[in-house]
């Protein structure tokens, strides 16, 4: 295999607040091959969005302390000057956000917002940029793009707005696309359309995709590999089959058990994970998941409370951070 297209090594992100230091990401490492899809899964506050913003260089360097390495196509992004990272944003790497209404500027026509994205990365005349904007809108399935290009964001539906965001992200043919919960703010009926659109466009263009989500359904459809994050840490990392059919971390297991499955033959009760995600200011000692873990009592002594487990490979390519991984090879969620 060639060198991975995106490598994140030992990423740590923390910001000081009035209440204390928020340790948003602790020692994350992962990599994605060119053209593949990695999903980062976790609840809110697990550090997944911060990870994405760290890669994009969107975190304020002054108020955030970041360490580690992010290498994109051989370039160490953290070694670059702010202006060099800026020139990569929107051209080599692009991002789609959760809420398309608040992510588009309410005062500018969508066409102007697209034209701006084109013109900032190259000497393109306004007329040509506009033509590209119309093409891009048509490409993401917006009907009558030559008229819609002059609409304001509030004149479009939620799904159409997210299509505009996708068109804007892809307009300069980026080689890395980060989608940060792109369907969360949309109607359920539209979610599948947007997911499918992203997948199709990714296949067409061969873009590497980093998909950030809390929706395991989306993950199963799109991802090649999955990174499960909890409390700012990667707790499990493997192929989509590893995560779905051979989950080893009690948290991953719990996540799968809490997802409703329409296809299931039996009527099941959903099994939520007890408790709440940890505060990133005051993380639990030892394993960050121990206060909510059902298997803690099965571990000898107070190991889960005193010592943080390390991320170790159970099988090649399948990593888990747990003192007592679940060895059972039953399909996740359907475990009797």
């Amino acid at each position: 295999m060639s060198a991975p297209f995106l490598v994140v090594e030992d990423l740590n992100v923390s910001f000081p607040t009035e209440d204390g230091v928020v340790q948003a990401v602790s020692g994350s490492s992962f990599s994605v091959q060119q053209g593949r899809t990695l999903a980062i899964v976790g609840e809110s506050g697990s550090g997944k969005s911060v990870t994405a913003q760290a890669i994009m260089g969107l975190l304020n360097r002054r108020s955030t302390s970041i360490s580690g390495r992010v290498v994109l196509d051989g370039t160490d992004l953290f070694a670059l000057k702010e202006d060099q990272v800026r020139s990569l944003r929107g051209s080599t790497m692009a991002m789609i956000f959760q809420d398309p209404l608040s992510s588009l500027h309410p005062f500018y026509r969508i066409g102007d917002q697209l034209v701006e994205a084109v013109q900032v990365h190259g000497r393109v005349s306004r007329a040509d940029a506009r033509k590209r904007a119309i093409d891009a809108l048509g490409h993401v399935g917006i009907p009558a793009p030559d008229r819609r290009v002059d609409d304001y964001p509030h004149q479009l539906s939620g799904g159409m707005r997210q299509r505009v965001m996708i068109a804007m992200a892809l307009i300069n043919s980026p080689s890395l696309l980060i989608a940060d919960e792109p369907t969360t703010a949309l109607d359920v009926t539209v979610q599948a359309q947007i997911t499918e659109l992203i997948t199709t466009l990714q296949r067409e263009s061969g873009t590497t995709l980093l998909m950030i989500t809390h929706d395991l359904g989306v993950v199963a459809d799109m991802a090649d590999e999955v990174c499960v994050m909890y409390g700012g840490r990667i707790v499990e990392y493997g192929t989509v089959d590893d995560i779905y059919y051979r989950p080893e971390h009690p948290y991953t297991h719990g996540l799968l058990a809490s997802v409703p499955r329409l296809a299931s033959a039996r009527v099941e009760r959903l099994d939520p994970i007890p408790g709440n995600p940890p505060s990133l200011i005051n993380l639990p000692t030892g394993c960050v998941f121990h206060p909510r873990c059902v298997r803690r009592s099965e571990v000898a002594g107070n190991l889960c409370l005193t010592e943080e487990p390390t991320l170790v490979a159970s099988t090649p390519g399948h990593l888990v951070r747990c003192h007592l991984p679940i060895g059972a090879r039953t399909p996740g969620g359907d475990a009797a």
Partner: peptide, 17 residues
């Protein structure tokens, strides 16, 4: 602090713009 400012930065616009 608005989301569309983050979008503007994600597009690669210079900070003064």
């Amino acid at each position: 602090n608005e989301d569309y400012i983050r979008t503007a930065r994600a597009k690669g616009l210079p900070e003064r713009v």
